[in-house]
């Protein structure tokens, strides 16, 4: 393991934000590292700058994304170790879909775990199962997105492969991973009685630590304009 980490310490990836003192990205006080790149194109995406892996420059001149080494990221993460220890917090990897930069993602999780920092991985589930399996030992808690309950809707609104996501969720459960389901409630997309009933069923199943229903917000809209992307039109 140590050899692996040493080799990975100079690995680098594209990070579009590091948020310290995150309150809503897992237990305790956390540092959330946002990696660029996402296989999905959710119509309501509030982080459109996360979709492409490469750094982008907005019309405002703002640069979205910069290459950072594992060491550099971990230096920031380590700075708040005391706060993690007192609050039960740690590192959250988010995105985009953090597993898109698989090697970088794995290296960050390994480094954190090896130094005793709790880890959360935010994932949409559209991940190569082999990669996901390799990550499991390094993740204390998965935040697993559950956007729609039907494959057709999922494909229409996000471009996702529902079967793959379902299989990955099942694999995590089979491996005994702790999972919080994160469920955005999008007006005009899934704010239906049927979806609400589905989430209630999932919650009652006892399979998950928690089911979180996340309200839609429009804070990401200005970024579409800055990136020259059309505004979302799902509503």
């Amino acid at each position: 393991m140590v050899a692996h980490s040493n080799q990975s310490s100079h690995l680098s990836g594209i990070v579009f934000d590091i948020q310290r003192t995150s309150l809503h990205d897992g237990p305790g006080l956390r540092t959330t590292v946002f990696l660029k790149g996402c296989p999905l194109r959710c119509a309501w995406c509030h982080n459109p700058e996360s979709q492409k892996i490469a750094p982008q420059t907005g019309q405002s001149g703002k640069v979205y994304g910069q290459r950072m080494s594992v060491d550099t990221v971990m230096q920031v993460v380590e700075a708040d170790r005391g706060f993690y220890e007192s609050s039960g917090g740690g590192l959250t990897l988010s995105g985009g879909e953090p597993t898109v930069q698989f090697g970088f993602c794995l290296a960050l999780l390994q480094r954190a775990k090896e130094s005793g920092i709790h880890t959360v991985l935010d994932t949409c589930g559209q991940v190569d199962p082999n990669n996901l399996a390799e990550l499991i030992p390094w993740v204390d808690l998965f935040h697993f997105d559950l956007k729609l309950s039907d494959n057709q809707g999922l494909r229409t609104w996000t471009g996702a492969n529902g079967n793959l996501i379902e299989a990955n969720l099942a694999m995590l459960e089979a491996c005994g991973s702790k999972i919080v389901l994160r469920c955005p409630i999008i007006p005009g997309v899934n704010d239906t009685r049927m979806h609400a009933a589905f989430l209630d069923t999932m919650e009652a199943s006892g399979r998950f630590e928690r089911v979180e229903r996340l309200p839609y917000h429009t804070s990401g809209l200005p970024k579409y304009a800055d990136l020259g992307l059309p505004q979302p039109t799902f509503v």
Binding site: L23, G28, L29, G82, F83, S86, S87, G89
Partner: peptide, 21 residues
């Protein structure tokens, strides 16, 4: 005010750590 209510334990941990450090 977000730090209070159900986030109160996090606020408490934040302050305690600041003081411990």
């Amino acid at each position: 005010k977000d730090w209070f209510g159900e986030m109160r334990p996090k606020f408490d941990a934040l302050l305690r750590t600041y003081f411990a450090q």
